[in-house]
Simulated assay, not measured.
Amino acid sequence: MTLDSTLLAAFAPTGVLRACINLGNPILAGVDAQSRPVGISVDLAGALAKRLGVALELVVVDAAGKSVETVTNEQADVGFFAIDPRRAATIGFTAPYVLIEGYYLVRNESPVKTNADVDRTGTRVVVGQGSAYDLFLSRELKQAKIVRTPTSPAVVKTFVDTGCEVAAGVKQQLEQDVAGLTGYRLLDERFMVIRQAMGVPITRGEAALTYLKSFVEDMKREGFVQNAMQRHGITGVSVAPAE
């Protein structure tokens, strides 16, 4: 991939690559013992900055909606998002690099046994505001009421504290948040596959998006994404197929 000055300016108009890192999804990013951001998205951001030949600056947020807003407003140059048609109005997406599963969590005594049981009048489903599964369920659920929390990590606590009937989220996040608690179960099947991609503001132009798409395909093909998952101990997700 040839990089000219125009393309470099599209990615790093301030002279550094500003990458937005969302800590609200533990599969993608978290913090280490020194409170430094770490994870697959951080590794990919570093690899992109190295390929561009610029320094990396991390813009850290705690929710998917904030990440979308940050990149849309060009307060960051690239970000890591689940692909969704609503977000595509302002962000250009690559193909996904990992596939993540969205699941429902209920209490053991809940009459909800299958995904089809969720969309009923009187059922309240707790989601993280602006998350991929919030956007998806806002379109799909016709009778259930959606209750939104500021961030995805707050979903289970809100579900437990308020007595809502269902919590929705990334499978690993739900499992992590109920670890040590009794009386809860995941339903047996996912309700969606979250296609996690990189993205740039659409204002940066088609050439920048094409370059980023090629970068992501290289990272998948060369084993970078798989190695990052292993390095950070991420299980239960898969590297997206080549496109």
Rank of each mutant, 00 (worst) to 15 (best):
T149L: 04
P150A: 00
P150I: 00
S152W: 03
S152P: 05
P153K: 00
A154F: 04
V155R: 00
V155I: 15
V156D: 01
V156S: 02
K157H: 02
K157M: 10
K157E: 09
T158E: 11
F159I: 08
F159N: 08
V160M: 09
C164Q: 05
V166F: 03
V166M: 08
V166N: 06
A167L: 00
A168R: 05
A168F: 06
G169W: 07
Q172C: 02
Q172R: 15
L174C: 10
L174D: 02
L174A: 02
E175S: 10
D177C: 02
A179H: 13
A179D: 07
G180E: 11
L181E: 15
T182R: 13
T182V: 12
R185N: 13
L186E: 11
E189G: 05
M192L: 09
V193N: 11
I194T: 05
I194G: 06
G199S: 03
V200F: 03
I202T: 13
I202Q: 08
T203N: 08
R204E: 14
G205T: 11
G205D: 12
E206V: 07
A207G: 06
A207N: 15
L209S: 01
L212Y: 03
L212C: 04
K213Q: 14
S214N: 14
V216M: 07
V225C: 04
N227D: 11
N227R: 15
N227F: 00
M229V: 11
Q230G: 15
H232I: 13
H232G: 08
T235P: 00
T235K: 14
G236K: 01
V239A: 07
P241R: 00
P241M: 01
P241D: 04
P241Y: 01
P241E: 04
A242I: 13
E243W: 06
E243K: 12
